[in-house]
Design a protein around this nucleic acid. Structure first.
Length: 277
DNA sequence: CATATGTCCTGAGAGC
DNA sequence: TGCTCTCAGGACATAT
């Protein structure tokens, strides 16, 4: 579930490792099927050991740890976490980075479902291997006109288009429903048929919701999986207007119940009264 | 090219 | 109580 706000919270949570030297990269024994790690651990260790971390950045829903000319890319996907404190449990730790810092001795990549990935690339490979053909502009830096042009070019339902990382990077299933509600747009509307005025409203809703969600350190849903780097839950779930609130009265109009529909095999939540066409 | 569907994975919760 | 079944969804592979 980690989307832009959760991944940005992970990034900010481990910023303190900048300036620290990497001692060792290792994979704890784990009874589950191993996650995808590329290249293999000994190679990653050989390239990163003794290198100093120079920056931690975010690319869409990935966390990037920079050291020398290398970039360690952590992709949490559904249940991945980046932990500086004790992870939720010891069984699902997928990668450990030992650091030369008594205050922050160990960075862990934890992932219960194991769909996440770890990849080490050279800085010079990032554009061709991660951005090109995969990622559009970041949801927090794209400009209003580019946003409109991109969503005007596809006929898919606008909710489905919002999940396409090639259009705009960072939005996922939860925040897509929330921003469409605030923008008062029906999620099934073909994207190209949404008026410029409404797309502009969506742009504003996207920015304000993502920024507010970051301020709340993301959303920890009822399964409790998502945690920040210190193993604390986020609090934006208390601000959700429609997500996972089927049959609850719409908090905006106080009249219609929130409706759940399925689009592209994913749940969408909206108010049929507030979000027409 | 654009769009749609299938797949990966584990644990929580439902239903019997 | 303990079993089986369904579902959650990010991103990529494959199909139409």
């Amino acid at each position: 579930m980690p989307e832009l706000p959760e991944v940005e919270t992970m990034r900010r949570g481990i910023l303190g490792i900048v300036g620290t030297r990497i001692l060792k990269i290792r994979k704890p024994r784990c009874r589950y099927r191993p996650i995808t790690i590329s290249p293999n651990i000994p190679t990653i260790h050989r390239r990163l050991a003794e290198q100093t971390i120079t920056d931690v950045t975010r690319l869409g829903k990935r966390v990037l740890i920079h050291a020398d000319r290398w970039v360690l890319i952590l992709q949490p996907k559904m249940t991945g976490l980046v932990c500086l404190e004790a992870p939720p449990d010891a069984d699902h730790v997928r990668l450990e980075v030992l650091l030369d810092n008594p205050a922050l001795p160990l960075l862990r990549f934890w992932d219960r479902r194991g769909l996440g990935t770890v990849e080490l690339l050279e800085q010079s490979q990032i554009h061709d291997r991660i951005i090109l053909g995969k990622l559009g502009p970041d949801a927090l830096t794209i400009d209003r006109d580019d946003f409109y042009q991109r969503f005007n070019k596809t006929n898919r339902p606008i909710k489905v288009a919002l999940l396409d990382q090639k259009l705009v990077a960072g939005v996922g299933n939860l925040y897509a429903s929330e921003m469409l509600h605030v923008a008062r747009i029906h999620p099934a509307t073909p994207s190209s048929k949404v008026s410029r005025r409404r797309v502009s409203r969506l742009f504003d809703a996207m920015r304000s919701i993502l920024l507010e969600a970051i301020a709340h350190e993301g959303s920890t849903l009822s399964d409790g999986t998502y945690r920040n780097a210190l193993n604390d839950p986020g609090s934006y779930q208390s601000q959700h207007l429609v997500y996972d609130r089927a049959d609850h009265p719409c908090p905006t109009c106080n009249k219609s119940p929130i409706q759940r529909i399925v689009q592209a095999q994913r749940s969408t939540f909206f108010c049929p009264r507030c979000q027409k066409s």
